[in-house]
Design a protein around this nucleic acid. Structure first.
Length: 804
RNA sequence: GCGCCCGUGGCGGAAUUGGCAGACGCGCAAGAUUUAGGAUCUUGUGUUAAUUCGUGCAGGUUCAAGUCCUGUUGGGCGCACCA
């Protein structure tokens, strides 16, 4: 058969479209009685550059699984959409003068046509676009629900700020402590920021992982990101002051080893007691120095400890009444714990370095190391610690210490997380407007639900304002409004939501994309949730995955969705590297454009190669010549049609078919696409060796290959005289008995070295196998003149004869 | 620094519970076909004089180790002064 890919690919894409082949049936519709399968892939950001081969790989995995499941009789939903708010589009718009709306529409159109050309079996009736009013209406709705629940709030925080440009900069725009635009020094400035209180959900996000089927490394990364630690809060009296200095520690059992305290430079108690501090000038100088450092410098460039002793403030150790000095140092962060620590130099590396530099006492309280040389952080017997002396086990001594603190009323057990609250506003145009009104009388007032969506006003200049404020702040008719509560003049919030907002719930909207009354109909949510299988990149395992799990859990708590977890299963694909083995990038010039491959070899070849190139979860370099190998394979598949006349299969080929059906069925489910395709290549080699196959056998072959190379397989199917789409036909089944050969080749080893192979009937008794092995010529030669000590026979696998 | 993962031919990569290492593909070689090139087809292809040696390196467990254990080295990813 002639394989004219460009002709047949277009033809079948149109047919699938015309027949609505991949439309998912909603509850109540015909087809919904089948078992549902909701397969989700991460929707793309529609950049102007168009699709990347990485996109194809990301979608191909579940494309194959969902096509197979459909053929197995599932009601499959495999949707696609666009995560279209964001900076690149806005920057492009600023540069070209086009409106971001127009840029987005253009890019979505481009992506859509590229995705269609690859032949993905998406349900195109369910497309969502996060920038459409009907969509972001519900993003805003969720925000307001969070606001009502106290989970969205405003607070002041330190941000990177360029005093010369008067703009707030992201960490990326302020690397090295210099402004990316004018190269002047960046300072840390307090600014009002919107937060979502994700920390409130830390435990739910952590413990929810027990009930989901994510790849182990994905779970591990989420666990690390949440960063739960157990310890204690301890209140140290400030000598002669009313306030207590509250600290967090994971080792309250080392309290007797505390020789100083450290506060973060920004700690509020410093200002409160400025009058009592004798060296306030030194402290201010140190603070200014710290404020210059970006978050990057402060955390990444670990170097010598710095700090200043606070002259005039001391603390009292509640456990032994000792008076100890207090320092400020930037190795203590305001953003973690309480912004102050008790320092135990004998058993903490950082405290040890600091104590060495400032000549502070080091008191050993846990035996096991040499505290003259370095901090000992291991376990051991507690010493020099009063009532804690003699404990040998961290768990017990910590428990005892917490009990004692509670008795004294000066501390208690507590939990801390590395995860921080989610800074949720951006001073940009191309994002969802935050639906809040600032009223001088009523404070922050939510825009009433019935007024959603709060639309992005039309404008032509999108560059951020000079003072670091959103471009929306320049539109007076947008900013000036009336308070929904008291009706008096008020001002609208002008910040927008970050990129991560729209993608935090898109999988819910696919379920009911056109609903005007709810984010999705409840009966449909009940039917489709949870997402059965979600695949995407490792880079989204922490941010996007955690954010969306958070939103979903919140929606669950307010009764808006039926499941506590959004995704039942999560996998990740590996990167496609450039032919040189480096990450693909424009600057290296090693980017492969999927369109070129489709033009030259066809979409089926592109799909086959991407799935065949290596383990789906691992990174693998692109190879032009291997692409040609896949082309050769599909050419041979087309040739199968010409020899599909054979009458009756040989037993040999029949068994090969049954084995392949089994292997391919299992491998697709396990995302082992490379070995599934290898098995089909092996089978086609067997078929050509045999010289012919039956039409039924060809039919089985193309069904197995259909999820990978659907256009070619549909074409062959039609040539075979079938009117029904192959994509909607039944998945082949196999007979387990026929996958087992009647005879097997058994390896025979002598002292663990291979000495020959023998053919034996399947499940041959051990004694017979050993006898047959002993009778083998080469084996006999190898054991000649030696004593047989042991004979091991593993049925259908191996015989090993141990001799001396 | 901490956590996780990975080192297999010239290359990409296969190898259930430990059980014939190198499936499948690329590349390469020889032959066929072709005016030539390209394409296609056939055969061969870890290494060795060998029944040898072979899964980063060094040990160990085992009748048997790519697979399990210990150490080490090289690479990747994540987190990172987290108290």
């Amino acid at each position: 058969m002639k394989y004219n890919f460009s002709e047949i690919e277009k033809k079948w894409q149109d047919r699938w479209d015309a027949e609505g082949a991949f439309r998912a049936a909603d509850p109540g519709e015909a087809g919904s009685e089948k078992k549902k399968f909701y397969a989700l892939v991460e929707f793309p950001y529609p950049s102007g550059a168009g699709m990347h081969v990485g996109h194809i790989k990301a979608y191909s995995g579940l494309e194959v699984v969902s096509r197979k499941r459909r053929m197995e009789g599932y009601n499959v939903m495999f949707p696609m959409g666009f995560d279209a708010f964001g900076l690149p589009t806005e920057n492009y718009a600023i540069k070209t003068g086009m409106h971001p709306r127009a840029v987005t529409d253009k890019n979505i159109e481009k992506f859509t046509s590229q995705l269609r050309r690859v032949g993905f079996a998406f349900d195109w009736n369910r497309v969502v676009d996060t920038t459409e009013e009907d969509y972001y209406k519900w993003t805003q709705w969720i925000f307001l629900k969070m606001f009502e629940a106290g989970l969205a709030f405003r607070d002041t925080a330190l941000v990177n700020y360029c005093p010369s440009c008067k703009v707030v900069l992201s960490n990326e725009d302020s690397q090295g402590g210099k402004c990316d635009i004018c190269h002047s020094d960046i300072i840390q400035k307090s600014k009002d920021v919107w937060y979502l209180r994700i920390t409130e959900y830390a435990d739910k996000l952590l413990f929810g992982l027990d009930g989901v089927d994510y790849l182990p490394n994905i779970k591990q990364q989420q666990v690390n990101w949440i960063g739960r630690s157990e310890g204690a809060f301890v209140n140290f009296t400030l000598t002669g002051k009313e306030d207590k200095l509250r600290i967090y520690t994971t080792r309250p059992d080392t309290l007797f080893g505390v020789t100083f305290m450290v506060m973060a430079p920004e700690h509020p108690l410093i200002d409160k007691y400025a009058d009592s501090i004798n060296n306030m000038a030194d402290i201010e100088a140190y603070r200014t120095e710290c404020a210059k450092k970006t978050e990057f410098e402060r955390t990444q460039l670990v170097k010598e400890k710095t700090g200043v002793r606070i002259d005039g403030l001391t603390a009292i150790n509640p456990i032994n009444g000792k008076e100890i000095p207090i320092y400020i140092a930037d190795y203590v962060m305001m953003g973690y714990g309480t912004g102050a620590i008790m320092a135990v130099p004998a058993h903490d590396t950082r405290d040890f370095e600091f104590a060495r530099k400032f000549g502070i006492d080091v008191i050993e309280v846990i035996k096991g190391g040499d505290i003259e040389k370095e901090a000992y952080t291991g376990d051991g017997e507690v010493v020099n610690s009063g009532f804690l002396n003699g404990y040998n086990n961290k768990k017990d001594s910590i428990r005892r210490a917490i009990e004692e603190l509670q008795k004294l009323g000066t501390g208690e057990g507590g939990v801390q997380y590395k995860m921080k609250d989610w800074a949720f506003n951006r001073q940009r145009y191309w994002g969802e407007p935050i639906p809040i009104v600032h009223c001088p009388h009523c404070g922050m007032v939510p825009v009433p639900y019935e007024e959603l969506p709060l639309r992005l006003p039309n404008m032509t200049e999108f560059a951020p304002g000079q003072g670091g404020e959103s471009p929306l702040a320049r539109i007076e008719e947008y900013v000036n409004c009336t308070c929904p509560k008291c009706g008096k003049p008020a001002k609208r919030e002008t910040d927008t939501m970050p990129q991560w907002a729209g993608s935090s719930w898109y999988f819910l909207r696919y379920i009911d994309p056109k609903n005007n009354d709810a984010l999705a109909d409840r009966a449909k949510l009940d039917y489709w949730l949870p997402v059965d299988w979600y695949n995407g990149g490792m880079e989204h395992v922490t941010r996007h995955m955690i954010y969306s799990r958070f939103w979903h859990k919140f929606l669950y708590d307010i009764g808006a969705v039926p499941t506590a977890e959004p995704y039942a299963k999560r996998t990740a694909q590996g990167l496609i590297l450039g032919p040189d083995g480096d990450k693909m990038s424009k600057s290296k010039g090693n980017v492969v454009d999927p369109n070129d491959v489709v033009n030259e070899f066809g979409a089926d070849v592109l799909r086959t190669y991407i799935l065949f190139m290596g383990d789906y979860g691992s990174a693998a370099p692109w190879s032009e010549s291997s692409v040609k190998g896949c082309k050769r394979f599909l050419d041979r598949v087309a040739d199968l049609y010409d020899i599909a006349k054979g009458s009756g299969a040989t037993a040999e080929l029949e068994s090969a078919f049954h084995k392949t059906i089994k292997k391919v069925s299992e491998d697709y489910e396990a995302m082992k696409f490379n070995t599934a395709i290898a098995a089909l290549m092996g089978l086609i080699n067997d078929i050509f060796d045999h010289g012919s196959l039956t039409r039924d056998e060809l039919s089985v072959f193309i069904k197995l290959l259909c999820p990978v190379a659907p256009h070619l397989c549909e074409e062959i199917n039609e040539k075979l005289g079938n009117k029904k789409l192959l994509s909607l036909s039944e998945w082949p089944t196999y007979d387990e008995a026929k996958t087992i050969d009647s005879t097997v080749e058994i390896a025979v080893q002598v002292n663990g070295k291979l000495r020959g192979t023998i053919m034996l009937p399947v499940d041959c008794p051990k004694d017979d196998a050993i006898a047959a092995a002993m009778a083998d010529e080469r084996v006999a030669a190898a054991i000649e003149g030696k004593t047989v000590i042991k004979q091991i026979a593993v049925p259908n696998k191996i015989v090993n004869i141990v001799v001396k």
